[in-house]
Structure formats: structure tokens, C-alpha cells
Simulated assay, not measured.
Amino acid sequence: MTTEFTLEICQKENIEKIIEGINEYNLSKVPATANIWEPLEFVVKDKNGSEIGGILAGIGYWKGLDIKVLWVNEKHRQKGIGTTLLKHVEKIAKEKGVKISMLDTFDFQAENFYLKNGYESVGEIKNFPKGHRRIYFSKNLIE
């Protein structure tokens, strides 16, 4: 069987084309209600200027807050840093008209943290990684 295509490792310019392609397709099905991606990324530093936490999130083109990473250094946990970061991006998102926040975490990471902060589990993958669960959460930001 002869193929009419090749399969290659992505280069930076290929990645941009792939993202552009999926965005074009998605937006042909459901029009955007916001910019393609508006980053909401913040870092927390201690008094010495060292990074002790941060959040990488953003608002997508259908006005959803997508939280990619929320991290707090183990020595600084249980001090309200994670909650402060989470509430900060939620507040900004709400001010911009965002109605829903979404994220995923693992059972060994922050499952209880998100439950305490009003998130609800909307699905999970069992035994991934082995012996654990990957949990998907969402939260309505505007009641």
C-alpha cells in the first residue's frame, strides 16, 4: 500500500499550524465569545524573592477558565497560598464574564483542595497512573 503522506517529529512551526488548524475548525462549529487564549499566570514569592507557588491558567475562546497548573512548594502548603492563587484567578475570570472553571488533578495531588474550594468532580480515569485516579473538576463561577 502506497501512502501519500509522511509522519515527522513536530517542529515549532508545525505546532503553530496544528493549533491554528484545530482553532479554525472549532470556531467554524461554535463561534468564539472571547479571545483565543487570555493567560492568567501568577507566581508567589517569599521574602527572599524565591518562587514558592504559582498558577498557570487562562480564559479560552468560549469563556471558560482553564487551570493547567497550580503548585505550592511543600514547605509552604496549608498556609492559604493555593487558595489565594485560585481565588485570584477566579475573581479575574468572573470580572471578565467567565461562568465556568475547569481543571484536572490526581488523587495524590489536590483532590480534597479543589473539593474544599467548591469544585465538583465531573469524571475520572481509574488506575491512572497505576493505583491512582486522574480526576476532572469543574465549578460554576457565576451562580
Rank of each mutant, 00 (worst) to 15 (best):
T33D: 05
K94P: 05
P39R: 12
I81F: 09
F128V: 08
G80N: 06
T33M: 10
K130M: 08
I19K: 15
T33E: 09
I19E: 15
K63Y: 00
K87L: 10
G131L: 10
D66M: 13
Q109A: 03
D46P: 09
S121R: 14
V44H: 08
L7I: 15
G97L: 10
R77F: 02
K12P: 12
K116G: 05
G58R: 04
F106T: 01
I67G: 03
S101I: 00
A57E: 02
F42T: 05
N112C: 04
S50N: 15
E24Y: 12
K17E: 15
N14Q: 12
K96L: 03
V44S: 13
G58N: 06
Y114G: 04
I81C: 07
G21Y: 12
L27Y: 10
E16L: 12
L40D: 00
K45P: 07
L70M: 06
V98T: 00
T83P: 06
G80I: 01
D104C: 09
V30A: 05
W37N: 07
A93E: 04
E20S: 14
E95W: 01
K45L: 11
V30F: 10
E38G: 05
I19C: 13
K130N: 10
I100M: 12
G60M: 07
K47W: 02
E51M: 14
F42P: 05
N48F: 09
K116D: 08
T83S: 15
G54C: 05
E13C: 04
D104P: 00
E111H: 11
C10Y: 12
E74A: 09
K12R: 13
E120L: 10
I15A: 11
P31C: 03
A110T: 01
G53R: 11
K96A: 02
C10K: 12
D66K: 07
G54P: 06
V122I: 14
I100V: 09
I100P: 02
M102I: 08
L7V: 13
L85Q: 01
G54A: 06
L40Q: 03
L103Q: 05
E16M: 14
K29S: 05
K63G: 01
N48S: 13
V69I: 13
G49K: 09
E124C: 05
K75L: 13
I125G: 03
E8G: 04
K12G: 07
I22P: 04
S50A: 14
N26G: 04
N14H: 15
K96S: 04
